[in-house]
């Protein structure tokens, strides 16, 4: 029998945080700086969940929806009138996620007309 593992708070894998952060900074980052970044990510998620809860309750719902997230990103100044949400999605998310979020009419959209 294996010893019961200690319950840890769920967190993003540090390798992923490291990868994303170094992709954007483009300068060498010290190891202890990455530790701080991980802490920040943890705090960010905690605050995100609190905010989303408040916005969902405000709309008298019990399920977080896309509208709540868009409102949050608007308040964060990420989404503005000049920078709509779907533009951010197009810019930062991989294709399979974009397809889920921005449904495109794929059927009957024949580029090459067959004779």
């Amino acid at each position: 029998a294996t010893a019961p593992r200690r319950k840890r708070e769920p967190a993003l894998p540090s390798s992923l945080v490291k990868k994303i952060f170094s992709h954007y900074v483009k300068v060498p980052v010290a190891r202890d700086a990455f530790k701080v970044v991980e802490k920040c990510v943890e705090v960010y998620f905690r605050q995100l969940s609190n905010d989303l809860e408040a916005y969902t309750m405000h709309a008298r719902r019990k399920t977080v929806e896309e509208a709540d997230l868009e409102l949050l990103m608007r308040r964060q100044g990420l989404v503005t009138d000049k920078m709509p949400l779907h533009v951010l999605i197009e810019r930062h998310l991989p294709l399979e996620h974009r397809k889920l979020l921005i449904p495109v009419a794929m059927s009957g959209n024949k580029v090459i007309p067959h004779k």
């Binding site: 405000h58 709309a59 008298r60 409102l71 608007r74 308040r75």
Partner: peptide, 15 residues
């Protein structure tokens, strides 16, 4: 924005 999110056109104290 908050009022619209709550599907209202009138801003109230909750907002």
């Amino acid at each position: 924005m908050f009022a619209r999110h709550g599907k209202r056109t009138v801003i109230n104290s909750e907002d």
